[in-house]
């Protein structure tokens, strides 16, 4: 019955039974771990608010036999990211970050860089950085840290590094396609301007604090956002909850179709929705 004590970020927390919670944590030492917190929903619970999503905590847990779920015995909050709860835009972006880490990381496969990127991303959102831009940068970096880096240095199909002018992004192929290979993508590719390619490359290469100084507006933002969204959907095989979840039903995802005429409606978060508490 090994006992673990490690830093962790709470990814999800779901009700279980009468008063318990099943919590998904991304821990520094063990990677993604799922555990049961007995009595966590009771008023006098020792866990308090320590198991709320987005929280950076110091958690103690033990394993019980062959059970995949660990038993969480103690939680101390390091940073609750309380201010994220004051804005729907920041909350939605933070939800996207934990969802992407949860979807891309394997159980019990520790990744220090994934942990620090997620933590930095949540901190940036709490500091009121642009939620869409922050989430794009974190998603690009997490894709790299988990082995799913989108190919932007040469054609993802023919490996030709010199034919990427006016390239297109193909989620199925995992990166940019040259003009020659684009014709074979059966209309599944998205437009990708040189500025958008440069943004993805810089977001991937720069350390997080420097990456947050990148700017992406207008066409670049729309292209990168659409490409990353389509690529993540291809990698994990399902649609993650939309960042604009308030309008999810009125804006069904349209990625993966012939996209020359894609209208690219402005993302609601671009309008800097400010929500008073």
């Amino acid at each position: 019955m090994p006992l673990w004590k490690t830093e962790a970020i709470t990814l999800h927390s779901r009700r279980w039974g009468e008063a318990d919670r099943i919590v998904t944590l991304y821990t520094l030492k063990l990677g993604k771990v799922r555990g049961v917190a007995r009595g966590a929903r009771r008023m006098n619970s020792q866990f308090g608010a320590g198991l709320e999503p987005f929280g950076h905590v110091e958690v103690t847990f033990f394993e019980k036999g062959q059970d995949a779920l660990v038993r969480i015995s103690q939680v101390d909050v390091r940073e609750s990211f309380l201010r994220l709860r004051e804005s729907l835009a920041q909350m939605s972006a933070a939800a996207r970050l934990v969802n992407i880490v949860s979807a891309l990381s394997a159980d019990r496969d520790a990744g220090t860089r994934i942990f620090s990127t997620l933590l930095n991303g949540l901190q940036s959102l709490q500091d009121k950085c642009d939620p869409v831009l922050t989430s794009m940068i974190v998603q690009i970096q997490i894709l790299g840290h988990t082995g799913f880096r989108p190919q932007t240095d040469h054609c993802a199909s023919c490996n030709n590094p010199y034919a990427l002018q006016a390239a297109r992004f193909c989620a199925v192929s995992g990166g940019l396609l040259c003009r020659h290979c684009e014709g074979q993508s059966h209309g599944q590719s998205l437009p990708m301007s040189p500025g958008s390619v440069a943004f993805i490359q810089q977001a991937r290469r720069l350390p997080f604090p420097a990456a947050t100084r990148l700017k992406a507006v207008g066409q670049i933002r729309r292209e990168v956002e659409a490409a990353i969204e389509a690529y993540i959907m291809e990698v994990i095989g399902r649609q993650l909850p939309a960042m604009d979840f308030l309008a999810a039903e009125s804006h069904p995802p349209s990625y993966g179709v012939a996209n020359d005429q894609r209208p690219f409606p402005p993302h609601p978060m671009e309008n800097n929705i400010e929500v008073s508490g």
Binding site: M91, A95, N99, P241, A242, F245, A248
Partner: peptide
């Protein structure tokens, strides 16, 4: 309740 984590919207 609305859920940004699960994509539960107002409808």
């Amino acid at each position: 309740a609305l859920s940004p984590l699960d994509g539960v919207g107002p409808t």
